[in-house]
Amino acid sequence: MNFEDLKKFFFKKPKNALEGTDESSSAQKPAEAAIPDKLAEKCEKCGKIILSDEMRDNFGVCPKCGHYKKLSARDRIAMCTDSFEELFQDESGKNILDFPGYAEKLEDLRAKTGEQDGAVCGAAVIGGVKCAVFSMDYRFMMGSMGHTVGEKITKAFEYATENGLPVVGFVLSGGARMQEGIVSLMQMAKTSAAVAKHSEAGLLYISVLTDPTTGGVSASFAFESDIIMAERGALIGFAGPRVIEQTIRQKLPEGFQRAEFLQKKGFVDLIVERKEMKEKLAALLKIHCTEADA
């Protein structure tokens, strides 16, 4: 990975503006705005002041404590691809159910993030292999899936199926977008159907589960891939830890629902460090593109 290229893409906005993360225990308080933009930032875990350049060079991993800062959808794509051409960027949702306050919320987030919704999709090259990519954005209601997110991801799979391409999906989601009610739930079925069709065409799908992957998204395309890669330490589960604690009225053990726990239980193929993610994806894509009987 070329560090200079990475710097160009990475962390244009060092301030962390986490949205209400309904189910994620890994949510941290936003860093205080006292630090000037672009020069330095405060690690959301250990609180130490880190030079933004140093943070960038380290793939958004705190050099002091090793904490993985959440990446925006585009930063993740920049980190893991050789090149990327965005598709379906005009997809934009509306307040389908006239849910109170939702239209204003969408407008506010669009202004803040410059994104239409919580997913970015397109055609990419990773390690020389062409693929379709989708990437979810924590800044947009913690990557929750409503119509727009579901539609873009479905289109990415349909595009890949038509063009005979593998799909690499960077998953990050607190779950369903409850302001879209049943339409949000139906996105689980819609995306699943598109994944199934892509798979029946004999094509590869790698899902990369990042922190957090929970709720409706975890119970659909996150766990329907040929290969499930997880980023070190990511929270992955159906129910959020707080919901489980309330249900069973006891504290959950340390490390419960983390990527390492899931691997031990048999639900994750491999765990990767952030800095090796692109290399690992490239290697897996290459093996799957090489004819075994050639």
């Binding site: 975890s218 119970a219 766990f223 159906f238 129910a239 069973i248 639900f267």
Partner: peptide
């Protein structure tokens, strides 16, 4: 929602059922 359900892959089980 519980420990055993998560340990045995509730997400994967539902995802596979839908698919």
């Amino acid at each position: 929602c519980g420990i055993g359900a998560e340990e045995r892959g509730q997400s994967e089980a539902i995802a596979t059922a839908i698919l």
